[in-house]
Amino acid sequence: MARYGMLIDLTKCAGCMACTVSCQFQNELPPEVHYIKFYQQEYGTFPDVSLVNIPVQCQHCENPPCVYNCPTGASYIADGGVVLIEESKCIGCKYCMTSCPYNTRVLDEETHTPMKCVFCFDHVKEGEQPMCVQTCLGDARVFGDLEDPESELNKQINEKKARPLRPDLGTKPKIFYVW
């Protein structure tokens, strides 16, 4: 069984937001709704300081608080470790939205249910790459199977010493960042 993950190399990310826009096209989202949100953060201690663009989407955690806190079972972990939402079970309590430390879920104004990145799961099942990975101009994104030790994803995670965001929260995210 595959366990899908992603690497985002922030040292290659120019913050062009092509991934955000292509994701909007792919998922037919209105302009104001983003599955991939861009944040900027300063880090370090003077004089070794830097400013980094952080594209953040659903981290498809292995211990997803959104899934464990969802009272109706609408949020669930599907094949490949992808976190999905079954709209027909969702009551719109928004507990998943507050539970997600990465703040990646957005509310659909029409259905009143949360939406988020699904790793373009339908395309991935067909052997394609997610749209954000296909579109990335700087080649900052790598998608693959974390279970496959020979995958390009695992090689780059090891070479670049990529780490997830806030691993201390215990959510075990499957998106790894290089910064």
Binding site: C70, T72, C90, I91
Partner: peptide, 13 residues
């Protein structure tokens, strides 16, 4: 859908 509150995920707080 409120019915799923009882059977969906009983471990959710």
């Amino acid at each position: 859908r409120f019915f799923f509150l009882y059977i969906g995920r009983p471990t959710s707080i």
